[in-house]
């Protein structure tokens, strides 16, 4: 199975990176200097071991015909919109950024044809959430 090979390889790499990072951590000033490192070290080594097992298991089985995955276009678009929201959120404030954010997502996922519904949902949601947080929970949004 190809997925096992991938999961195994990623685990080994991540486990090794984590272990190396652990070894570079500062030692404790009080008590046993290695105390804060012991638990993470065990985790790192175990993860590498598990990764090797899964990798070998994946290699031993004959690769089954790779399942045709769906399109990743929407996922990439969603992530880009999320990142844009992260950048804008504190600059232009909650309501404008959220209208743009949800509106953008709806246009990408639901399609431009349904623009009336999309805009309506985006505006209602943003004002609705803002109202709930400001007036009912007394939390300040930017």
């Amino acid at each position: 199975m190809r997925s096992d090979v991938l999961v195994g390889a990623v685990s080994i790499l991540f486990g090794m990176a984590y272990t190396v990072q652990t070894l570079h951590l500062p030692k404790a000033m009080v008590g046993n200097p290695w105390a804060p490192l012991f638990f993470p070290l065990a985790l790192g080594v175990l993860l590498v071991a598990m990764g090797i097992v899964v990798l070998l298991k994946g290699l031993r089985h004959h690769p089954s015909s790779a399942k045709k995955g769906g399109s990743k276009r929407l996922i990439v678009v969603t992530i880009l919109i999320c990142l844009a929201y992260t950048a804008l959120f504190e600059r232009i404030g909650f309501i404008p950024s959220t209208i743009l954010f949800l509106g953008g997502l709806l246009f990408a996922v639901n399609g431009a044809k349904a623009w009336i519904v999309n805009s309506l949902i985006a505006v209602t949601f943003s004002f609705g959430v803002w109202y709930v947080f400001e007036k009912i929970f007394y939390m300040n949004l930017p």
Binding site: P26, A28, M29, G31, A35, P36
Partner: peptide, 8 residues
């Protein structure tokens, strides 16, 4: 780290 104050 709660016990030693080391940043991890």
């Amino acid at each position: 780290d709660y016990q030693t104050g080391v940043l991890r």
